[in-house]
Design a protein around this nucleic acid. Structure first.
Lengths: 253, 253
DNA sequence: CTCAATCGCGTATGACATACGCAGTGAGGA
DNA sequence: TCCTCACTGCGTATGTCATACGCGATTGAG
């Protein structure tokens, strides 16, 4: 975290992300930092949703004027980019004693729990490969769990990218469905299967009609936060089964 | 598509999605339909991005006034919900002769190709379980490929939901990275590995440092549209391996 | 001591979603 | 036949938003 040499060579946005600031500038002391602004913005987003995050609202939270923010953040888009890293907390030290399968499962559940606390995460732009300190720390944590598998480095990255893709999808679906559920709970109840029975023509969509007839959607609550992890793990375990096969084939484990 | 009886019992938003309109109303003939509005909005989003879709812009495209749209669409959010289904085309008839593995692979690649043509798809709210005609048609197509596996209906749904989650993640990552690449190509070039070498402390992030040192990121182009499918299939194949194991264990195949 | 870089911020500007109400339309009922 | 009123398109107004611009105050470097 302390400034090191040669930081001038860092691109401006990356320097901001890592909290590296040039020291000893002229002019009045800043009463604000980009970090303060990012923290205020994330607080507002947590409490009132991403839509409530406006430059004016963030400035009010900090007791500053709207335009003062622009001295520290080039645009609202840049603020959102900073929030992308701030939405993550640093990963806890994952115990390395358990196997890679438990490690990856725990990793995924921790990321999902983190995203649950900051549902606006899935609405932020990504912009590029991971470069923020927290994003990289999670990346490292995932790679570390694969240390004992004997997989090649590119295979490790491939496995982690696949997992990341899967988890990204789960994060987006959970955030969207959770918001939709709050806004319109009836759409998740018995009404759904009733509607499907009316709308799904068995001649046009036989497989879906069979599923509907089998009663798979006959439930009072299609999106239940308490069961979300269980349902996630059903599919995620299939992915891990594939990784297991890869490890057996190419790894030294 | 022709109006059937008992459509009044359909919730208003669902009726809109399925193009069911009550006939024989008083007053002047509408010069506009919700479908026209949705089509105009998708055209604008395709050509200029979702940010260019404003009520005024859509109305101008149609030669109407802004406020005329609100007679057919309750709000912009409702328009976005209609776009969620309109972003999909109906799935082509998937040849049932190939195995389920080829079927699901083809399904996923078709969905990704569809999303590539409408990159704004990943920015739309989802709102609830799939209810639009095109969404349901794709759902059916996926279930149909699993017909010969002997899996139970709940297992089929679980497998398809997992695939959907994975593909959702891929769609979001592709859309975001593609936009980020267009806006800021340097972030995807050699600069990335250079930055990582400077920022990743091998003591704090040993696994990531090892990957960086192994040269995994030493490439001129981290996001290459031409290789995207290949990279996707690396991870997706792992998921399918897991499905294969499930079929071997629980299916009759 | 000077001065230019940097600060916070007041004041526009233009885009946006949308509430409200008016005037015209045309099918159903008298 | 004609009246009624649900329904149409739309002009206007309101409040919110991001952000360009420039002013006056501050302060470290020379």
């Amino acid at each position: 975290m302390e400034p090191t040499e040669a930081d001038e060579e860092l691109p401006a946005d990356v320097a901001l992300l890592w909290g590296r600031r040039e020291t000893g500038r002229r002019g009045p002391r800043p009463t604000l930092t980009a970090e303060d602004i990012t923290r205020a913005a994330t607080e507002i987003a947590d409490a009132e949703g991403l839509a409530a995050v406006s430059m004016a609202r963030v400035a009010a939270q900090l007791g500053n004027s709207t335009m003062a923010l622009y001295r520290h953040v080039r645009s609202k888009d840049e603020l959102l980019a900073l929030m992308t890293d701030a939405a993550l907390e640093y990963p806890p030290a994952l115990s390395a004693d358990a196997g890679w399968r438990e490690g990856l499962t725990r990793w995924a559940l921790l990321v999902l729990e983190n995203a649950r606390r900051h549902p606006w995460y899935s609405q932020l732009p990504i912009g590029g490969p991971p470069i923020g300190p927290r994003n990289l720390a999670w990346f490292d944590a995932a790679l570390r769990t694969l240390a004992g598998t004997g997989l090649s480095e590119p295979d490790k990255v491939g496995v982690v990218m696949g997992m990341l893709t899967y988890v990204q999808g789960e994060i987006r679906l959970r955030a969207e469905l959770s918001a939709g559920h709050a806004a319109n709970p009836e759409a998740f109840g018995r009404r759904y299967s009733t509607l499907l029975r009316r709308l799904v023509d068995p001649r046009r969509m036989p497989a879906l009609a069979a599923v509907v007839e089998a009663g798979v959607f006959d439930t009072d609550e299609l999106y239940d936060e308490a069961e979300a992890d269980t349902e996630f793990l059903y599919g995620f375990a299939l992915y891990l089964d594939g990784v297991e096969r890869l490890v057996a084939r190419k790894g030294a484990g």
